[in-house]
Amino acid sequence: MATRTITHYITPEDSPLGGTSLEIIATIGKDLSSKKIPISLTICYQKDKPEIDEQGKVISKTQSSTLQYYHYSIPNKLRNRKNNEFVIGIPLLDTNNDWVRDISRKLADATAKKYEVPCYVSWSTTKPSDVTSISMDQMFVLRNCINFINTLYN
């Protein structure tokens, strides 16, 4: 086993600014000093936290969600004056939803830049469309995801 997988829920109560509930499944290398093991983040947007009984068993049914976007970012090892990007990224599964593409790319780029490892971000939603999302929500998602990855590194 070279990796571990952690599931994490974020609820709007975590932030005074409010936001949307999220589920994050992160796979991260056990050897945190290795720069070759990628972090992979799978995010389910607007997912309700499942009810859990005293034995820790999940009562409510798993909500199905649709994969919308899959992005890969990698730190730029060949960085020079001409090619000045810190991170290079590519969509592996594209979407026509700009909001989803933007936030996933930002999250992948930020993670790749901060921890100097390749990063895969897959974004899924439980509801068909979320065009009503506002930019405040984007900050909430990004900050909470980065905070969560931070806890994995400490």
């Binding site: 990796t3 997988t5 290398g29 070759k36 969600s65 899959y70 895969y120």
Partner: peptide
């Protein structure tokens, strides 16, 4: 690791974590 979505299955196969 595999994650099942309603439209896709995402399968990640790592050798030595990579």
């Amino acid at each position: 690791t595999s994650i099942h979505f309603s439209n896709q299955i995402l399968l990640q196969i790592r050798l030595n974590g990579e």
